[in-house]
Amino acid sequence: MNIFRLTGDLAHLTAIIILLLKIWKTRSCSGISGKSQILFTVVYITRYLDLFTNYISAYNTLMKIIFVVSSLATVFLIYFKFKATYDRNHDTFRMEFLIIPSIILALLIRHEFTVMEVLWTFSIYLEAVAILPQLFLVSKTGEAETITSHYLFALGSYRGLYLLNWIWRYYFENFLDWISIVAGFVQTVLYCDFFYLYVTRVLHGRKLRLPA
């Protein structure tokens, strides 16, 4: 464990908590893409199957359980409890456009051709692009609530911090995993446009509104 990985994990955890609190406190999931949340749930479930086969640490197990349970809770809030507030008309990105290529790529480029390895790799590829329905929704409505911007910033920072973690691990532990690195890089790049708007607008007290 190094500082980048720990802060990355905490940013990830913060993002999830911000989102759950936003939905719970406002009793509304407007502006939130249910599809991105379904995709994240698929990511966690397929990646953390090793909870049943491989013990790493109490920290690792606890965080995995938190991610799976909280993402399921988020999906439940969006599609059941507060479904009247769900922006389904704007949440029109097709999930299969992300899931099918991720499956194909995971079958082709992975460490080993085993069920667990292919599912792990699929989860890495899918995570890289799972935010696209959310970014698409923001671009369709042209704006995001400030709290949603904080959520996106925390979620985007997490993989960026992991990139620093992988550089660290390469130098100090001689570890290198190109699948994680390339996918993590793509994932971080997808947020760049948003990061720019976040820093120039939201941090200056304005609402995130996309340029016309």
């Binding site: 990985r5 491989n54 790493i56 460490h111 973690n165 992988w166 691990r169 995993d177 699948i179």
Partner: peptide, 10 residues
Amino acid sequence: DTKYVGHDEL
């Protein structure tokens, strides 16, 4: 034991 880096991460 984890064979690949990344598999011990979240």
